[in-house]
Design a protein around this nucleic acid. Structure first.
Lengths: 343, 343
DNA sequence: TAATATTACTAACGCGCGTTAATCGTCACG
DNA sequence: CGTGACGATTAACGCGCGTTAGTAATATTA
């Protein structure tokens, strides 16, 4: 039986007190430890294979050294999200550098109410990052009233919570504007998700504004709501095609959804971009590899992760963060899925 | 300042002792608590918004109620993995049902040695699931010698660790066999990853065996090693094309990599499946939506997650698991990327 | 040389909870 | 009325660690 090795064991072996062990291993500069003593302690720790117990440390120090990534989306929608790994990769990278752990959770839309509190108090996290927030999430107000460090990936209008996001609205506007510049006037839209998701409604707003600025009348019949995955993109694109409405381009507010749309268009015998131009959103890794390569808006996934982390750290340190809402730039990546109607 | 609410507060409000509170909230059947007392306690807890502190509970009970998912791969390769979300979705789902948390970690290939031990002892996990293990991982032997509950997603020959995996070898064999049945004899192969990754070498072996059984001589020059992402698939497919070797089909041991291959083939003016047939592996969600829809091997991602969880739970309960290595079935999904040369 | 500062370390408490052993009724039985 | 059994509850310890207040030993100053 592998008996647990405690700091007391290290102390005994090194011939010092447990306090000294603690000071040495935590590099407590405030207390002067003679270098040779410190070395003795370190040697003993290594010899015994000592790893401080995280639970005990968390209890004593009131810091878990873990942060939580909370996804307010059901698992089946998590499973098909090709963007999630980018966030995870970025987050895992920077967290490891700083010796922090990442606790992943999902909360079902409907019982976020208590979830958030339980997550911080009950689970072992010092702060949390909220992915894909919903406008209709009642738990967000609760969170505002606590002093739990929270960063929202996505912008919530009117919320006092700190956030990191791209400017979805103007990015969408840019995307649609690109189509308009190419001469398209009849432009459909498939959202990335249901409208309570802030990113979905903001991208739809960008679509509307681009139309408006170009003097094109907004036609709600040309709009469909998808649901994160390619399957919903396929379904909604078919719905658009079956409506027999005339359009020469479609703005799909998610690459993943756009791939489903691709499939529906291909099945209908329509060519991209000859018959229909498509602009996506996210620039998922596969966007440049599909045929035709997808014109899209690039999301700085890694940067979003890094900025979220940094903002969260400031909050956890009780610094006054400089910005309440960090907004990151996006780029229009023009590839082969859009075509000019002019000339 | 939100003072922390402890079980003592609940006890005071309910007019009972802290012990009673603990018994009630943990549904301790062994001690008979009068129903009205239990109700008083529960009411007090609700009124105060009490959430037991996980660190303290972990320390006292020696159980963290968290499990770790360990990915032995660098973050940049995590970021482009479209299969990871399937595992995560499945795992998150079942873990939530059982009130467990999921701690995500990556270890860099090269310093797994101590990582694993530190992860369990230092971090807050009761057991761990290892993703994408490498044959050359020295830390695995260390793990075998401990009594830490570990489940490996992927099969490690000769290891005593418990594992859940598909039969990569025969699945790959099936895939290549499909090509052979269609009349292909000159079949190239692009692996999903470098060969130290067990899944990569096993799939390559399946490829070899299928050839052998069909009496086709194995030609190493027709084999390339990719590196998880589509970019590497593109690169390796170009390398194959530039070799000027003759082949009519290619087995790409990862859909993600296959998409890169698609791109290279398209760029070279070759048609799938008219000029080249392609079979992938994984059946990522997008496989059925790309053009042409990819013939591939379906991985039961959700089932892998569920089985891993169940096996891990048995180990954590110190049950004797019935099977040491769970092997899950795969299916060949024939779509449009393969074509018969016969007739 | 006595008083004070400095260095190097330690004793001891508390974090919030699970859990065992003990306590305090209460009731049945002889 | 005393004894034992049982049901309901609690006092008290320990989990492993961080940390404050303190001690002992040495160095510095008046």
């Amino acid at each position: 039986m592998n008996k647990r090795i405690t700091s007391q064991d290290v102390a005994n072996l090194a011939g010092v007190s447990r306090t000294t062990v603690s000071f040495v291993l935590n590099n407590e500069e405030r207390f002067a430890i003679r270098p040779e003593t410190a070395e003795k302690v370190r040697a003993a720790a290594k010899q015994l294979g000592y790893y401080p117990n995280a639970s005990a440390r968390a209890l004593a120090s009131n810091q878990t050294k873990n942060i939580g990534l909370i996804i307010s989306r059901a698992p089946q929608y998590i499973a098909t999200d090709p963007f999630l790994p980018q966030i995870l990769g970025g987050l895992l990278d920077i967290l490891k550098e700083n010796s922090l752990g990442l606790l992943l959770e999902w909360v079902e839309p409907g019982q976020q109410l208590e979830s958030y509190l339980e997550l911080t108090r009950a689970h072992h996290i010092d702060g949390m990052i909220l992915m894909t927030p919903r406008l209709d999430d009642p738990g967000l107000k609760t969170l505002e009233e606590t002093d739990i460090p929270v960063v929202v990936m996505g912008y919530i209008p009117g919320s006092t919570l700190h956030s990191v996001d791209v400017d979805n609205l103007s990015a969408a506007e840019t995307a649609v504007c690109h189509l308009i510049e190419l001469g398209h006037t009849k432009i459909a839209c498939i959202t990335n998700a249901a409208l309570p998701y802030t990113s979905a409604s903001q991208r739809l707003d960008g679509y509307k504004i681009a139309l408006q600025k170009a003097g094109i009348t907004y036609n709600p019949q040309l709009v469909r709501e998808a649901d994160f995955d390619a399957q919903s993109g396929y379904t909604q694109m078919r719905s658009l095609l079956e409506s027999n409405l005339d359009f020469s381009a479609v703005f799909v507010a998610s690459d993943n959804v756009a791939l489903g749309a691709y499939s529906a268009l291909s099945e209908a015998g329509l060519s991209i971009p000859d018959d229909i131009s498509v602009v996506g959103f996210d620039d998922i890794p596969l966007a440049s590899f599909i045929q035709p390569a997808l014109t899209t808006i690039s999301m700085p996934g890694h940067e979003i992760a890094v900025q979220s982390y940094q903002l969260l750290m400031q909050l956890m340190r009780r610094d006054f963060p400089l910005e309440r809402a960090v907004s990151l730039p996006t780029d229009l990546i023009v590839r082969q899925s859009t075509r000019s109607l002019i000339g």
